[in-house]
């Protein structure tokens, strides 16, 4: 499993670096592109965890739809394309960083304290893998039986968001 570890750390590095750039870059479009990198790398981590259906959805929905939506948002709000010094509160950087580090410290400590060196089972051993070596079937079975009601609620929520977004954004 050395290979998996190598992949994990490589991808994790990409995630952390890109996420860092998302929140620090002075260029709005670059932020969006770094976000793509984060999202794609997170999808790669999902595959590492044998959740390839979620990974595919992540690529389709996040990179395919949400990022495009962001780019539209950037375009429609006439954000300055190129460097813009005004994107960050200079005065808030210290406070924000301190808050984030404090959170990280608390979370990191409690995670290490609670889970220590426990390991995720090998994907092959896991019950998550269905008959033909994929967990898509398991996930869909679960959604359409055990979690049917939440699923329907989510679809109603999406509909409500759709209507709400139209009502908010239309001109009249």
């Amino acid at each position: 499993m050395v290979a998996q570890n190598i992949f994990f750390y490589a991808i994790a590095a990409v995630i952390v670096w890109s996420a860092f750039r998302v929140v620090t870059t002075q260029n709005v479009v670059h932020a969006a592109l770094h976000l793509v990198a984060v999202l794609a790398s997170v999808a790669a981590q999902y595959i590492l965890l044998a959740a390839e259906f979620v990974a595919a959805t992540q690529v389709l929905v996040y990179i395919g739809a949400i990022v495009v939506l962001f780019l539209f948002g950037i375009m429609l709000t006439r954000a300055k394309i190129g460097r813009d010094q005004e994107l960050t509160h200079k005065s808030a950087i210290v406070g924000g960083a301190l808050t984030a580090l404090l959170l990280l410290a608390v979370m990191g400590y409690s995670l290490l304290d609670e889970f220590g060196w426990s390991r995720t089972p090998l994907p092959e051993d896991s019950r998550l893998i269905g008959v033909n070596g994929s967990n898509s079937a398991t996930v869909s079975d679960s959604i359409f039986s055990q979690y049917l009601v939440p699923f329907e609620v989510i679809s109603v929520l999406l509909l409500a968001a759709l209507v709400g977004a139209i009502v908010l954004a239309r001109k009249d």
Binding site: A92, T99, L102, V106, Y109
Partner: peptide, 18 residues
């Protein structure tokens, strides 16, 4: 700023609990 206070407050509270 309110959000920052919220997060910081939550983190401090969590730290106290730990």
């Amino acid at each position: 700023q309110y959000a920052a206070l919220l997060f910081a407050g939550a983190a401090i509270l969590a730290g106290i609990f730990i």
